[in-house]
Simulated assay, not measured.
Amino acid sequence: MSAWRWLVTITRDSRSFFFTFATLCGVVPGVIGYGVMQVTNSTNPELEARLRKSARPETVMMGKVNQERLAEYLGELKQKQDTNDRYVAALRGETLTRKPYQRIQPVPKPSDTVTTKAQ
């Protein structure tokens, strides 16, 4: 506890110590994080191919869905379309569909049978 009080006192009294301490608190974790990312990042194509081959089917499907959604979103941005309704829909718990005539579709609610039994 006394170390904490000393740290508070010295950072309050010395502006140079405060900036040095703040810089160290930001730089040291950044350097450590960068080092960990470099050590754990594998650019081995064989490992990547093996991991992709052993992926679960739902993981592969979600990857394709996310890729399609990203392509759709980037296409809208490229054509400078208004995408605010996407955010409005997300706030209301709705999602976009692939049908051009129906842009927004509500997310299906859980079945009402559970609610009826609870009452």
Rank of each mutant, 00 (worst) to 15 (best):
S42M: 10
V28C: 10
L70V: 00
L91T: 04
V88N: 09
Q105C: 06
R103F: 04
P57G: 05
T11F: 03
V107A: 08
E72D: 12
G30A: 11
T97C: 13
T97R: 03
G93C: 11
I32L: 15
F18A: 14
T40E: 15
E46I: 05
R69Y: 08
D82C: 12
D112E: 05
E94P: 01
P108M: 03
V107E: 09
R69F: 04
Y101K: 07
T11P: 00
K80F: 15
S111V: 03
M37L: 09
L7D: 02
P110A: 06
G93H: 06
E58A: 08
E68R: 07
D85W: 12
I104Y: 01
T20R: 07
G63H: 00
L96C: 10
V36I: 15
V36F: 09
L74E: 11
I104K: 01
R12C: 08
V65R: 09
Q105F: 05
G93L: 13
R69A: 13
F21A: 15
R5T: 07
V114E: 11
R92F: 04
M62R: 03
L7Q: 03
G93D: 07
V27C: 04
A55K: 04
P110S: 04
G75I: 02
P29R: 03
V60G: 00
K109A: 14
Q119E: 06
L51A: 08
T43D: 15
R86K: 10
P29K: 02
D13K: 10
N84E: 11
V31N: 00
M37R: 04
V88G: 04
E68F: 14
K53T: 01
F19M: 12
K80N: 12
L91A: 12
R92C: 08
F19Y: 15
A71Y: 06
T59R: 11
T23M: 15
F19R: 08
N44V: 00
C25W: 07
